[in-house]
């Protein structure tokens, strides 16, 4: 049987901050900024949360939902641009914390915001080649924008884990296709705390070119048009870019209804498209076709042509929280507490 998604789980930290509150501190019109980005709130991790803890929480949910024995996992790949260690893999801690060690391979992936989708492709290859029974692909970030930078209005925290296998597949992967170029739209140099970006250059030659070309490429290869898909999920650095990409390609707002989560939790970077897909799967019945197109700066896109199966009817989603819960809940913080939580306050002696 074809490799596909066997189980999934998502996790978003509890705290939120609004663009109005960020703008209040920097003397900007935060409401207008939020409106133009289509980001109404963004998630903020607690001081004791990072990419390792978020990845672990989302994978634990996925394993319980799918009743998967962690010892049957042959590979764990964690995609992120905010790994807590520069050297020591996030995946090793996650593997230990879910009881998957020691007989598995594990590694960290980095490709700006698309490291999680790259991890899914790797797992599909390993499972498809019958080298492992289950592969785990996780996309998580706790990324930050520099204080006062436009990124600060959207950079948030969250993640999702997908278990790839061949038994009891709830969502088949019909095809995957990538589009990669050298495009320096967004980067972070070694040792730098905050990323840099090319402003408007992140739009047309970067996000829109890669996402639309990759989407057109996979639809051409599959012989499909936007009408063939019930749902579409794009990488969502803000709420506006994916809406415009959808419009360019000919998708309706209804097709994007569940896949667009950034307006409520912000840009979770490597987690963004995957949390959108998790929300789609939370609502999907059998036989629903889904197009997902991730994007990572630097730059590249990974597209997936997906279709849910009859197995999704009996898939037990009652464990853990649905994505919608995270979209609707959250405790709002003042900028001062947000700055404390995110380590933006100089404590002296450092």
């Amino acid at each position: 049987m074809q490799a596909g998604i066997v189980s999934y789980g998502a996790y978003v930290p509890r705290y939120r901050i609004t663009p109005e509150e960020i703008g209040r501190v920097w003397g900007s019109d935060g409401a207008a900024m939020g409106q133009s980005l289509n980001v109404h709130r963004k998630s903020v991790p607690s001081p004791d949360e990072d990419t390792i803890t978020i990845s672990t929480e989302s994978l634990r949910t996925a394993l319980v939902r799918g009743a998967i024995d962690p010892q049957q996992i042959g590979a764990i790949y964690v995609g992120s641009e905010s790994h807590p260690y520069a050297v020591k893999p996030t995946a090793t801690v996650v593997a230990q914390a879910v009881g998957a060690t020691p007989n598995l391979t594990a590694a960290d992936f980095e490709f700006a915001c698309k490291a999680g989708t790259a991890a899914i492709q790797t797992c599909l290859g390993l499972v498809g080649a019958d080298m492992i029974r289950y592969g785990v692909a996780i996309g998580t970030d706790t990324s930050q924008g520099a204080p006062g930078d436009a990124l600060e209005y959207s950079a948030s925290a969250g993640g999702a884990a997908f278990v790839i296998g061949r038994d009891r597949v709830i969502c088949r992967v019909l095809r995957t296709l990538s589009y990669t170029t050298d495009t320096p739209d967004f980067w972070r140099r070694e040792g730098q705390k905050y990323p840099s970006h090319g402003g408007r250059f992140t739009g047309e030659p970067a996000y829109f070119r890669h996402v639309t070309e990759c989407a057109r490429g996979i639809m051409e290869a599959s012989g499909t048009t936007p009408k063939d898909y019930r749902h579409v999920v794009f990488h969502q650095p803000n709420g506006k870019f994916p809406q415009r990409a959808g419009k360019i390609l000919g998708f309706s707002d209804e097709q994007m209804r569940y896949g667009l989560v950034t307006p409520f939790i912000g840009n979770t970077y490597s987690g963004a498209a995957l949390i959108g897909l998790a929300n789609v799967l939370d609502h999907a019945g059998p036989g629903e076709r889904i197009l997902m197109v991730g994007y990572g700066s630097g730059a590249g896109s990974d597209a997936f042509d997906l279709e849910t199966t009859e197995e999704i009817r009996s898939y037990d989603r009652s464990f853990g929280r649905p994505v919608e819960w995270y979209l609707e809940h959250g405790i709002e913080l003042s900028y001062a507490v947000y700055a404390k939580f995110r380590g933006k306050i100089h404590m002296g002696g450092e």
Binding site: V64, A97, G99, F319, G320, P322
Partner: peptide, 8 residues
């Protein structure tokens, strides 16, 4: 919130 599961 919905019930939580055991980690393993």
């Amino acid at each position: 919130s919905p019930p939580r599961g055991s980690p393993a």
